[in-house]
């Protein structure tokens, strides 16, 4: 049993070995130890989705996980979406549709949308809404966000 533990994980394609406190959340470790501050902290009770990252293909709330739980897993954060320094199709689509207002929820929205489109490349409006239901937007840009996801799906299928 331990109070700290060295975990091995792949974050945004790069494998890392990190020593973490066992009582730190994944969100804390990503932001404070790995310096990936794109993942946002907001409600910290699993309601808002600002902290969403993709772990082994599924979107999860990093505020609800201990960092030790990603030992052996593959993690993608919003910083992992760009391709060779360029925005990917989904990110560009968010820009085109003006989906970001204050922008705080956007990293989480992007991660949920990424996971959704991976499983379902051609979603309906309802499926986008359901897929992103765990991501709240205080600016209430839901229409634009939904549009952006649908436009990205179309673009990716061209």
């Amino acid at each position: 049993m331990n109070e700290t533990l060295t975990i091995n994980t792949t974050i945004n394609g790069r494998s890392r070995s990190i020593e973490v406190e066992v009582n730190h959340t994944l969100l804390d470790v990503l932001r404070d130890e790995v310096d990936l501050t794109g993942t946002k902290e907001c409600c910290v009770v699993g309601e808002c989705g600002a902290c969403t990252v993709i772990i082994d293909g599924r979107p999860m709330n990093s505020c609800l996980m201990l960092a030790v739980e990603i030992d052996g897993s593959e993690v993608t954060t919003v910083e992992g979406l760009e391709i060779h320094g360029e925005l990917n199709v989904l990110q560009a689509s968010f820009l085109d549709e003006s989906a970001a207002q204050c922008g705080f929820c956007i990293p989480g929205q992007l991660m949920s949308a990424t996971a959704l489109l991976h499983d379902n490349p051609d979603p309906t409006v309802e499926q986008v809404q359901e897929g992103l239901a765990g991501n709240l937007c205080r600016c209430a840009g839901y229409e634009q966000i939904t549009k952006a996801v649908l436009a990205a799906a179309k673009e990716a299928m061209r």
Binding site: G46, G49, T52, I55, R58, P59, M60, N61, L64, M65, S112, A115, L116, E130, G131, A133, G134, N135
Partner: peptide, 9 residues
């Protein structure tokens, strides 16, 4: 149950 993120966990 919860959201997509919660159901994954």
């Amino acid at each position: 149950v919860g959201s997509v993120q919660i159901r994954a966990r």
